[in-house]
Design a protein around this nucleic acid. Structure first.
Lengths: 351, 351
DNA sequence: TTCCGATGAGAGAGCGCTCTCTCATCATGG
DNA sequence: CCATGATGAGAGAGCGCTCTCTCATCGGAA
């Protein structure tokens, strides 16, 4: 167990000795170079198996000046983010796509100043070949600049705040989603429609609100807007405030499913039935939406696809040498600097 | 943006040249060696700042034969795990404690065979100095063996299945937690007490059930046990089955808060009030517990502390050179091979 | 003054790989 | 028959660090 007992791992050199070939040849075989005689390859493969050889990644990274590692930075002060299925989806998409390309994923949490400093050092240490950033909050994020300054590729999940940076991004069509939600509520006959919007410092929040506002037109009442933090608790509180101000509320758009759930709790506590008294539309269509009570009418966004697309976009720019299998869900990323994924209305029972 | 434009990062050599000293001296300064003249140190520091020097981690890892990286393996086939606040807590604890020790954390998801093979290669590539494993499922996990065989330190979060391996672990006192839940339900007068237990292939599941069973004594009815997967949905389904079999159920222990929430949904659908008709005790005390309807009586376990303790235990064995600041919540780990964290009953309204 | 130990800086090897060159071998065409 | 080119293996430099060894310098004791 003590590190001293750790059996030394075999090196290329030893494999070469055992196979009776040069280091270069072993390297060629290990890396799949085509110019190796079949019999040589066989001898090397046997030696590799026999010794359980696995290349030392540090040595390889040193000479290649590339670590085959991607960093996913979650820039979210509230660590309960992981409770949000949105992140599960992104993480799953990112890790699977990266894995398919033979890349490792490092997940970095940026919650406080200390974290940010650590990440800044991390960026400049060259430990990752590229960066993915999600849950970007305005003002709070020097990170995009740092990454770009370091000359490393960056993809943001969502629409970036800093338009001067001209950075790659993969967003969902939040504006359209907000519009769909508003239209649904209008169509089913709601007259006093409020919204529990997302945080003001996140583009996903402001974009959804913008779509909602524009589709509602003259029926939009700025007094019927309350902001939450995408969490269940904040949705509950915001809906309660809204209800107090407008007891005649009959339609509600919550900018996340979690907030919709909280809102429903608040509505019920105030004696309202959903959807009979107040219709509720959520946003995300994560796994809690379908099993909620009542099942949530919501806007579906494709989080796993978004995660995958982020990796593909990054790779298209940073590693054009890698040829990825085409995917039906993800448009080819070559030449693109941005991707906006479509969203759709999913009608269930809450509205 | 293309990698070719990437400005080459300065090396030790260049810093040395600028400061007019040798490479060795720069290395000493950067690593905080005590035997450096103050004036030299100042000159080097200035050069480091001027060039924005940051050591190349690959080079360092190569020569030190140590990567300063910890891998956290989440061995869970269902990727929605990230929706469970338990994982948020562990991840937060692990990353913060590792960060304090200057270590990076790589999160690896082991969901399918492909993932397992990738992780196996990862282990043997020496890319991490130690491994943390959570959500271990019986039978399914060759990983502990792989890690131990590679001579690397391993800490399991939870009680390990394979007792032959004599591996380090940090568990919660699940047996005691199950006992506390049973006692609470007895004390408040429940007579027909059932349980939505955790999965049979996880020690957290079986241990909680064991504590529950033992505390209930002759009031324990094996027919009133149903198993779930710690998720909300599985809890709902299990409770429904239980209720069908025992309509006179008046007490329920769910082995996770998420399952308790699902169970409450099922109970209500069947026309039962909580806690008036059926009292419910959960397990975890995660953030949904307090804000649930009704607020959950539950068993509190300290997930963030568990994550931190896992890192400390690993470090105590693998890196005795690091002296960590003592913590009040976490016992000193030197010499220990296991830690069992206390749990406690939190009484709210559901039981 | 001389000698010695302590202090602190430099020289240089080497970690495990990759990759460019070089070179040997062999088949082919003139 | 030799010249030529293709093929495939080996030699060796070097990636950016760390760390041991060596050595210069200086203060103090004899």
């Amino acid at each position: 167990m003590p590190p001293s007992v750790r059996t030394k791992r075999p090196s290329l050199e030893e494999v070469a000795a055992l196979a009776g070939v040069s280091r270069a040849t072993v390297s060629r075989v290990v890396n799949g170079a085509p110019t190796v005689d079949a019999e040589m390859k066989e001898r090397v493969d046997r030696a590799v198996r026999e010794l359980g050889y696995q290349p030392n990644l540090s040595a390889r990274a040193l000479v290649r000046n590339r670590t085959d590692t991607l960093a996913l930075v979650v820039s979210e002060p509230d660590f309960r983010v992981f409770g949000d299925p949105f992140f599960s989806g992104i993480i799953r998409g990112v890790t699977s796509e990266a894995g398919a390309a033979g890349l490792q994923v490092v997940i970095l949490l940026a919650q406080n100043d200390e974290d940010h400093q650590r990440i800044e050092r991390y960026v400049r240490s060259g430990a990752a070949d590229g960066f993915l950033l999600i849950s970007e909050h305005a003002a709070l994020d020097p990170l995009p600049r740092t990454v770009v300054d370091a000359g490393l590729p960056l993809v943001i999940g969502g629409r970036p705040h800093d338009t001067s940076l001209d950075v790659l991004f993969v967003d969902n069509d939040n504006v359209h989603g907000g519009r769909l939600a508003a239209e649904r509520l209008r169509e089913i006959g709601c007259r006093r429609i409020g919204t529990v919007a997302g945080p003001k410092d996140m583009t996903a929040g402001t974009d959804r609100l913008e779509g909602f506002r524009s589709a509602l037109g003259d029926r939009f009442d700025p007094a019927l807007v309350e902001h939450g933090q995408f969490t269940r608790e904040s949705g509950e509180a915001a809906a309660a405030r809204l209800l107090e101000r407008a007891p005649d509320l009959d339609g509600l758009f919550a900018a996340s499913d979690l907030m919709a759930l909280g809102a429903i709790t608040a509505l019920r506590r105030a004696g309202r039935r959903v959807p009979e008294d107040v219709a509720v539309v959520g946003f995300d269509d994560n796994e809690v939406a379908a099993s909620a009570d009542p099942p949530l009418t919501t806007i579906r966004q494709q989080t796993v696809v978004q995660g995958r697309a982020m990796v593909r976009l990054l790779l298209a720019h940073a590693r054009p040498d890698l040829q990825l299998a085409p995917s039906d869900a993800i448009p080819a990323a070559e030449g693109l600097t941005r991707l906006v994924l479509p969203v759709e209305l999913v009608v269930r029972e809450s509205a």
